[in-house]
Design a protein around this nucleic acid. Structure first.
Length: 242
DNA sequence: GACCAGGCATCGA
DNA sequence: TCGATGCATGGT
């Protein structure tokens, strides 16, 4: 696995490059990479059979150039992932990183390596504070979502079908299909989830089909079955880096 | 100084 | 059901 490519692939923002590796803050803890601790191995989902996954995806000739990089889907904390992708709404990676860092420094407990934990949902209850921290209009979604989560909105999600879980997530204010699919893919390990953002829309239209979002999603589900999420992440990185 | 950003909710056609 | 628009503001 290429840790740098994976961390830079836009799934996750709470990490920092250091001279001898990386430090990551997630799931209420901070860790250094490498050497790979058990927490790191779980976070980077090294138990996924990446060779089998890429072997299957390589049957799609058009996808091959995107598969040359060594990246992994992460296994993130659901609440933190939800906060991250609410924050990502009409934003960009440097800004998302900055917003989340400010949030965690202000409300999260300190961890090792000068990092801070994502505050629990009960602590995210002040829209004006979030606006001061630079969240802009996203603040008006984050506070009600935090309240819902603290009341148990994510409880039992891991045992639901992906479609049922997506419906539940989309009941949250500010959460629609794209954000829900990011949480399903990056936190709930639903490898068939296919976050459809502006970059994926562009690259899908370029490589595969002219169609609306519904048609693109149907195409991805059909072409890649339960691995559409991996295909999506490879395409995302490839289309941004070329 | 435009232009766009890992969108979503809302509204009019 | 689809396209346009406002939302806030920072990065490039």
């Amino acid at each position: 696995m290429d840790v740098g490519v994976t961390l830079e692939s836009g799934q996750f923002f709470r990490w920092r490059r250091e001279k001898d590796g990386f430090v990551v803050a997630t799931h209420g803890r901070a860790f250094r990479v490498p050497p790979l601790s058990p927490a790191a191995r779980k976070f980077f989902a090294l138990d996924h059979d990446i060779d089998a996954i890429c072997g299957t995806l390589r049957r799609d000739r058009k996808l091959r150039p995107a598969l040359r990089t060594d990246l992994r889907l992460l296994r993130q904390d659901p609440w933190e992932c939800l906060v991250s992708f609410l924050t990502s709404c009409a934003s960009n990676i440097p800004r998302i990183t900055k917003n989340l860092d400010a949030l965690c420094r202000t409300l999260g407990r300190p961890l090792a390596h000068g990092l801070h934990a994502m505050p629990p949902p009960e602590a995210v209850d002040d829209e004006k504070l979030l606006r001061r921290l630079g969240f802009g209009f996203r603040a008006k979604y984050l506070v009600p979502v935090a309240r819902e989560v603290s009341r148990g909105a994510l409880r039992g999600m891991e045992r639901m079908s992906t479609d049922e879980a997506r419906l539940r997530l989309c009941e949250l204010p500010g959460v629609a299909e794209k954000v829900a699919d990011c949480v399903l893919l990056f936190a709930y390990e639903r490898l068939e989830a296919f976050p459809l953002d502006v970059w994926i829309r562009r690259v899908m239209r370029e490589l595969y089909l002219r169609g609306n979002d519904r048609e693109i999603r149907a195409f991805a589900a059909d072409r890649w079955n339960g691995l559409a999420g991996y295909a999506q992440q490879f395409l995302y990185v490839w289309s941004r880096n070329r």
